[in-house]
């Protein structure tokens, strides 16, 4: 015990307040009218809530298109990450040494280590040849590529928890590798797959630099829309806060669901070999 109990609690309460206040402030600004959001001293609770900011946000031309882009790209890239990543994670978890393991892990780590801009410059140039600029499919593939390493690291830790003996007995009963993987391993790792899926979809949902470079009018995502609010000189905080809230709420809901696995996800790739 470094601190007295009361000091520990004060610190925890202070840190919790600081952690949650910006979230509270965004949400509360999103349901204030203009006068209330600009009033000083700030109105924390004493205001009449309004949905005006949301109606003006939702009536924005293209809002629903952008929102559905975000959902499609997030879901598409997450499914690819799970399908592609689970196979690799299984191999990496079960076989300590095979040809190509070291370079594969090197590439995975390169994604974690390098600033994305370094890779996105050439990707931008290449995508014009492949006609993947401003296409949802293009974004799905790029998002998936950037997130696969995280999916693999996370799933590896789940596969490692499944005893090898289970596979051995299945193999004795004559199951093929593929059958064993789909019928035995995946069902056993199902909670882990769900957690990985949610974690990876958070990464995609939050991603900004990739769509800012790779998306035009057709494939814009929510973070790009949220960011576009600051470029207008007339700063109107209400709709802006509403847009931020629309981006943040799904995250808050999802993280409550995966609370148990979150810690593993957030530190994945940091100390793994």
């Amino acid at each position: 015990m470094i601190l007295k109990r009361s000091a520990s609690y004060s610190l925890l309460f202070l840190a919790s307040f600081l952690s949650l206040f910006p979230l509270f402030w965004t949400i509360s600004t999103s349901i204030k009218d203009r006068v209330d959001s600009y009033s000083l001293p700030p109105k924390f609770f004493t205001f009449t809530p309004t949905l005006k900011n949301y109606t003006s946000l939702f009536s924005l031309e293209k809002f629903w298109q952008i929102y559905s882009n975000s959902i499609i790209i997030t879901l598409g890239s997450t499914l690819i990450c799970l399908a592609v990543g689970s196979l690799a994670a299984y191999a990496l978890a079960r076989k300590p040494k095979f040809r190509g393991r070291t370079p594969l892990e090197g590439l995975m780590i390169a994604i974690r280590a390098l600033p994305a801009i370094v890779l996105l410059l050439p990707i931008y140039k290449l995508s014009s040849y492949l006609d993947l600029y401003d296409s949802k499919l293009g974004l799905i593939l790029i998002f998936a590529g950037f997130n696969i390493p995280f999916a693999i690291w996370l799933m590896m830790s789940f596969f490692e928890q499944i005893p090898v003996e289970i596979e051995e007995s299945a193999r004795v009963d004559g199951a093929s590798t593929f059958k064993m993987f789909t019928r035995i391993i995946l069902p056993l790792a199902a909670p882990g797959l769900v957690a990985t899926g949610i974690f990876v979809s958070l990464l995609s949902w939050n991603e900004f630099l990739i769509p800012v470079i790779m998306a035009g009018e057709n494939s814009k995502t929510l973070p790009v829309l949220v960011a576009s609010f600051i470029s207008n000189r007339t700063l109107d905080w209400g709709p802006m806060a509403a847009a931020a809230t629309v981006a943040l709420i799904p995250i808050v809901l999802l993280t409550v669901v995966i609370q148990r696995w979150l810690v593993a996800g957030l530190s994945s790739g940091a100390v793994k070999e």
């Binding site: 040809r99 190509g100 594969l104």
Partner: peptide, 26 residues
């Protein structure tokens, strides 16, 4: 009883597309 390296081929393809090729092209 252990799975083999070919399970990593799809991952190789994606990582080649977003890291390997862009890196050298850059």
């Amino acid at each position: 009883l252990r799975p083999v390296a070919h399970l990593t081929i799809p991952t190789w393809i994606f990582l080649a597309l977003v890291v390997l090729i862009p890196f050298f092209y850059g």
